[in-house]
Design a protein around this nucleic acid. Sequence first.
DNA 1: TTTTTTGCAAAACCTTTGCAGTTGG
DNA 2: CCAACTGCAAAGGTTTTGCAAAAAA
Lengths: 156, 156
Amino acid sequence: MTVSSITRPLQFQGPATVLNALRGHGLRISTVRRVVVHTLFAAEGPVSAEEIAAGLDGDRTRLDLASVYRNLETLEELGVVRHFHAGHGPGRYVLAGDGEREYLACERCGEVVEVERDGLDVVRAEIRERFGYEARFTHFPIVGLCPQCAQGGASR
Amino acid sequence: MTVSSITRPLQFQGPATVLNALRGHGLRISTVRRVVVHTLFAAEGPVSAEEIAAGLDGDRTRLDLASVYRNLETLEELGVVRHFHAGHGPGRYVLAGDGEREYLACERCGEVVEVERDGLDVVRAEIRERFGYEARFTHFPIVGLCPQCAQGGASR
DNA sequence: TTTTTTGCAAAACCTTTGCAGTTGG
DNA sequence: CCAACTGCAAAGGTTTTGCAAAAAA
């Protein structure tokens, strides 16, 4: 579960920015909220609710999963966070803020690579022309085999 | 949940062909098995295990869901069936047999269109060149907005 | 009769929800 | 103080699994 070329959001440069935004919306800064936000900033890429609950290093007192999900939902409504589903397994959450980044997920090893903005525009255009579909890879990214797994053999 | 341009598999032309194949593998032809196979042939496109269990017309005695899943797994191992995940909700099962057809799914209305074989080769090539990823749309199809929903406004 | 398959119940996994109690402002 | 938030427990949706009973060959 590696993630490469992760860039930082522009709109929210750090936990403090986000917490301020929350305050601005009449929301409160609870301990859980603070930890969730900090964890998202500390993460090196998309993380699951479970990873946030457990703490990225497995240390720290566990957060309640339900509270994590509720917080992620709140943050998503504010445009601070978004999530996507890459294959089976739990959803993955990332800081949003500087546009809708897209990902390619490997269905064998779980690796997720971030694609630079507009990287899939050509693909989207092709699909629009041929099928009339408006492909959106932000919530359901493209799944396939990463370069390493593609060489190594078939899929699972 | 409409599906257009569905073509019939080549390798297994009808329920009987499949049942023979099953027999050939030392498997037994139970009532449930027979019904599952017939339902797959009667379906006009990808169907969920639940739809198979309930019967396409909602009539007929319900099949046990666990048995349906077990049968689908068996049929998948034999290459008779395959399934994919289009967005949230249950997996969808289709007859396989004449190659890996691919689908485009609408994340708003649930519509699934079948893409003619090789229809996404250009897209795959593009992704391979740019990112080194071997995209596979057979198990996790492209999700987006169908022409109708794309016109109608934003997504859910 | 033997081996496969079923039916039911339970569980696993991810996520949401209800509610009483706690906490932030 | 009061609304927002938490923690826990329960439930919802999809899929899997265990096991004794039933059915296929």
